[in-house]
């Protein structure tokens, strides 16, 4: 391969903790930087997910229509898709909302817990439970792990996965092998 492998990272419904763990690679990031081209990442200011990505590390569960759109786009433009962290792998904390209806969720988040009145309405009136649906993408009925939506090639559980596990996975992928991270991380780690 003449050019360096094109690596991208992305986040869906997560807390960005997996990206923080990635950054926790510290000085190893320097080694990594020499080995790959990071073509897209929340840490890099590129708006559109690029074509011909070799490896994409994706954090977060699929929760909204935007997430759905994103993950399908990523899948179609990526050779090896890595589910990074428990939200991507199991749904984790974002999926804890799945026991509730979206309506009751919005009511709880944007009315009962609101410290400012919504759209000029006093929080106590209960007249609108729409929430900020104009500005925020519509929520899916359930938050779901990525592999329930598109095919995933490598699963790296952990909340967040330890930096060592992330490095092992990336290094193995760069060496042309499909890694097994099960000895380095686990659900909830």
């Amino acid at each position: 391969m003449s050019a360096k492998p094109r690596v991208a990272t992305a986040w869906l419904d997560g807390c960005s903790g997996c990206h923080m763990s990635f950054l926790d690679l510290d000085e190893k990031l320097v080694d990594l930087a020499g080995m790959v081209d990071v073509v897209c990442s929340p840490t890099v200011d590129i708006k559109e997910f690029p074509q011909n990505v070799d490896v994409a590390l994706v954090e977060g569960a699929v929760s909204s229509e935007e997430d759905l759109h994103k993950i399908k786009l990523i899948r179609s433009r990526t050779k090896i898709l890595v589910s990074l962290g428990d939200c991507a792998v199991t749904g984790n904390v974002p999926a804890m909302r799945n026991f509730f209806t979206i309506e009751s969720l919005f009511k709880r988040a944007y009315q009962e817990n609101a410290d400012v009145p919504l759209r000029g309405e006093p929080a106590s009136t209960g007249r609108s439970i729409d929430g900020p649906c104009v500005a925020v993408p519509k929520l899916c009925e359930n938050a779901r792990p990525i592999h329930e939506i598109v095919k995933v090639d490598v699963h790296v559980p952990g909340c967040p996965p330890p930096p060592d596990a992330i490095f092992h996975v990336v290094a193995e992928l760069l060496a042309g092998r499909i890694p097994d991270a099960s000895s380095l991380t686990r659900f909830g780690k």
């Binding site: 589910s83 999926a95 792990p145 592999h147 559980p157 097994d180």
Partner: peptide, 9 residues
């Protein structure tokens, strides 16, 4: 490393 079955929630 992941659960292939759909979650029941």
């Amino acid at each position: 490393t992941h659960i292939t079955q759909p979650y029941r929630y």
